[in-house]
Design a protein around this nucleic acid. Sequence first.
DNA 1: CAGCCGTGGAT
DNA 2: TATCCAAGGCT
Length: 346
Amino acid sequence: MNIENNFSANLLAWFEKHGRKDLPWQHPRTAYRVWISEIMLQQTQVVTVIPYFERFIKTFPNIETLANAHLDQVLQLWTGLGYYARARNLHQTAQIIVNEFNGIFPDKLEELINLKGIGKSTAGAILALAFNQSQTILDGNVKRVLSRCYIIENSNENELWELAKQLTPIQRTAEYTQAIMDLGATICTRTKPRCLECPQQLICQAHQQGVETCFPIPKQRKALPIKQTQMLMIQNAQQEILLQRRPLKGLWGGLWIFPMCEESVEEWFKEHSEEKIAKKYIFPMFRHTFTHFYLDITPIHILMAKKSQFDLPNSQWFSTEKIEVGLAAPVVKLLQQLTSFQLIGA
DNA sequence: CAGCCGTGGAT
DNA sequence: TATCCAAGGCT
């Protein structure tokens, strides 16, 4: 018996007792629900995803309802989850599956990979979890488990894929796939792995050598640049707030945010409006952290004397109680602050 | 192919 | 508080 067989056998035996079997997307485990969950789980922890998944499925119980929805509603349900291209791709892919696949979820690797937002690993996960096909995944969990178990130092992507494929069993692939993710998420964690509870402790090379936490070798990160901006929280006499829709590509694509400006507020107003500012209040600056830069935001609340006109592309007045579009996280935070600020009666 | 794309949890 | 980074994919 080779070591690969031991690996999957150990894992499957462990899964029966200790695997996660009550995650929301496992009941029922349809392709649609597995797909939604896999997209949400990209670079996002299970705890964070669960409430989003519940709301999303409740609103869009099947692929037709998702395909027929407005992008704004999809992005609203995605607000706070990040990586908003995932939501845009999800919406577009739903329409393609309805229109070109007759609403039937594709079950071939090539077809899945050609869909927006579904890469090699997500395609493998959908086929393994929802269709029980013998397909391989290579996500963060699998990379961590394999790089420790087989001590892979310069984690070469192709090498890891080959190893992952060799270890994937022909049968019970759905259980195996869930199991290896569960192992990575609950036992073989990044910090403080619980090796004494691990079904692979006898074959794990890193554990034998006592160097579990040395793997996977962390990538060196560059220092994050700091950018600065002002967010204009412009409110008219009807208490409505002015928001502007971001272009579909790029940061916060398709979301609505407060108008941002780098120059002085007075100069910005000269360019975009003829109205006069009734009241201006500068909030304390705060830092928003992205993956690749910091954004220091100075919020400025501006009260207009009447229902004002703005020469600002893709902008619209919203009632603060009814905003049914996607919002960037700092905008949500500031809207909450503004509401409590006004409740106090300042 | 390296940079881009979010946010919040954990330490 | 600062840092890392989580069920990755796209360009």
